[in-house]
Nucleic acid binder design. Sequence first.
DNA 1: TTAAACTTTCAGAAATTTCTGAAAGAAATG
DNA 2: CATTTCTTTCAGAAATTTCTGAAAGTTTAA
Lengths: 172, 172
Amino acid sequence: MHFGEMGSRWGFNRTVGQIFALLVAVDEPLTANDIGDALSISRGNVSMGLKELQSWRLVQVQHKPGDRKDYYHTTGSIWDLANKVFEERRKREMDPTLTLLRDILLETPANSREQDLQGRLREIHDLLEGIMKWTSELQQLSPEKLNTLMKLGSGVGKVLDFKDRLLNKKSD
Amino acid sequence: MHFGEMGSRWGFNRTVGQIFALLVAVDEPLTANDIGDALSISRGNVSMGLKELQSWRLVQVQHKPGDRKDYYHTTGSIWDLANKVFEERRKREMDPTLTLLRDILLETPANSREQDLQGRLREIHDLLEGIMKWTSELQQLSPEKLNTLMKLGSGVGKVLDFKDRLLNKKSD
DNA sequence: TTAAACTTTCAGAAATTTCTGAAAGAAATG
DNA sequence: CATTTCTTTCAGAAATTTCTGAAAGTTTAA
């Protein structure tokens, strides 16, 4: 109950959030009708919601032998789910922005004003692209490594300093 | 022009996005009227938009001597701006979720089903809290360090391994 | 084939968000 | 204090998003 209410903050609408929350909460495959009944949502709306959740790769269809209903359930560990949400959001929010910026940067500036502007847009572009690359690389890392990295927190700075010192020594 | 269209993907509405884009694009202080004229937006709407941007701490008011209009302009480097957007979004999206989760975790589970559920919610809570802490610590890091960290990408894994090996040797 | 048991689609209704413009506020000036 | 020049607020209009439920589609089985 509580949980569903926060749906809208996470990039999908309330119903979708509620459906997802329900599936996480009961942690067992449900039919579309079960979901609609549990949440008092129309059958059509459930269908849309599940479609959306499938496009986020957060929910999968499952079949029970001798039963022709579709059963839906969440997929993977909490860690996997979080990863998918972040990844999809990155795709949906940053990719179009990057494409747009790239297009603008390809245009030939008509005057020095436009050239200035391109300069500033390039900064933004490079920053976003850097973040994109970095985050997607981090997602390749094993959960354990990510965990130590996270525990390290800003202490990461010290490790980097240390590494730099070693490298400098080598190049002396 | 182009730029404003992507406004809605970033946590604020189209108008707010356009206003912000305009201010970044011209990179000089504008009055509310300038903005309204440039974007064909009603005066009231401009006022709302600027209020919102101020609440994101992306835009500041400035005064010119002998002129009683309010001039608005963006604040800080691209890096600062990006930082602020991320920070505000973290606040707006994750904080309420965390509070909610914490409240649920404080309730006493009525039966073993609820206890299971709490277990799963605790996982989510801990994960989110970890991410929150980590990202806010990363933001404390200097841009240069963050930059090397980002360039390192998944290579961070190797640095961590390296650090672990050193520590283990010490404790041998 | 036909029927039964499902799922999906989609037009329009309902809810929500955003925008406008007129009215009210605020601050500076004569 | 009256006026001018600006800003903010807010009720209702407009636009957009979400939801419903009936109709169409799909699959399996007899």
